[in-house]
Design a binder for these strands. Structure first.
Lengths: 209, 209
DNA sequence: GGTTTGAGTTAACACTGTTCACTACGGCCC
DNA sequence: GGGCCGTAGTGAACAGTGTTAACTCAAACC
């Protein structure tokens, strides 16, 4: 077991990569470092993964799986506790923020990593994130039928909610935000704001730019 | 002039770095590439900049200068055209988004670059961004006195507006958003949503978690 | 027993940021 | 003018990166 071979080596590489990611962040993920920890050479990684990017994708998938699990259980719990759609939506937003704060390394490879090292992400990203976005969209629809507001495409509204929370998480973990402000208050207000469902697109009936 | 020396070399290095950043993005910024383009060795860069990070900071500062200029002129123009505070706030949000879309390379080094390569950013970032955030805060205050809503600290509100727009810009330029959605509609709705000033913090008077 | 297949390694390529020891040159003092 | 000094700039090197080509070695098959 000290020198795994075959498929065992593949999963050992993956395990080591995950451990490095979680322990030291995405910056610590180098082929040679993973290999050193596993006990093989860096070239062996290419026997089981097309390149470093492909290895990263597996971790990205894991992250999306984790996120979706969090969202689903938050939605379920909120559905049992509160019949109001608004509460369900808020619970999803809260779960999303919690994931971003508790799994910063996963969050980084999922959403913040530059497009170059994840060049094929655009096509697949929505495939992976779709279920989560659809869950948010459903909660939005439920909250909306309760309030009876003018409709905006629910996947658009879900994307807006997502991006708004993402901006806050991203700036907070990049420490781009004034340290004198209270992060908790910012997050609470941000969640509140993100859950305000956009009403009819005012911009379409504006007269001039 | 073909082989600049002294302070001329310093500004030649800076010019080349800026050109590389704008032409090919932050990924193209390597000391050796800059040096090759300038016509000196990579070591010479260290005569005028402590390290690559220090060189990047100069470009980050430039970016903040550009952004603030955009925001200021947008604010001024909106002030002349529309006396309503809301319109001024919307103009700022629009200008911010425009900057992010038109200067993606500057935007990246300013806000999206990982904290490690900009390790000292946290302390200075707010110093640089403060004026812009204060301008947004002022516009928020003006819009608020017009509407007469419950107060939330204007710098908190400004940070929320900023982060919400940032999330949208960040996901859009990282191509993390479903390509079937219309980016223009997303941006318009996002701007509208970001400009909704948060009212009293509901979460403080909530009874249970 | 010989051949083939495939897993894994070694060595290398082309990069990266950064440092150390060095050269070359201009100004200054005696 | 000769020697000295400070300094701008360089070449070589270190330690690291992702990745590839050529190789070894052992097991499997005929």
């Amino acid at each position: 077991m000290q020198r795994p071979q075959g498929p065992a080596l593949q999963s050992a590489i993956l395990d080591e990569a995950r451990q490095l990611l979680l322990a030291e962040g995405s910056g610590a993920l180098s082929t040679r470092r993973i290999a050193r920890a596993v006990g093989c050479t860096a070239t062996s990684i290419y026997l089981y993964f097309e390149n470093k990017e492909a290895l990263l994708y597996v971790l990205v998938d894991e992250g999306f799986e984790l996120l979706h699990g969090s969202l689903e259980s938050a939605y379920r719990e909120a559905s049992e506790a509160h019949p109001a759609g608004e509460q369900r939506l808020r619970a999803l937003a809260r779960a999303y923020v919690a994931f971003g704060l508790q799994q910063p390394a996963y969050y980084e490879v999922m959403f913040r990593m530059a497009p170059e090292p994840l060049s094929e992400f655009p096509n697949d990203s929505y495939v992976r994130a779709r279920r989560s976005l659809e869950l948010i969209g459903r909660a939005i629809d439920e909250a909306r039928t309760a309030s009876n507001l003018e409709p905006v495409c629910s996947s658009t509204a879900a994307t807006l909610l997502w991006s708004s929370l993402h901006g806050l998480l991203s700036l907070l973990s990049n420490r781009r935000i004034d340290q004198r402000l209270d992060p908790t208050e910012l997050l609470e207000l941000g969640i509140e704001q993100a859950c305000r469902i956009p009403t009819a697109p005012h911009w379409e009936r504006r007269t001039s730019a």
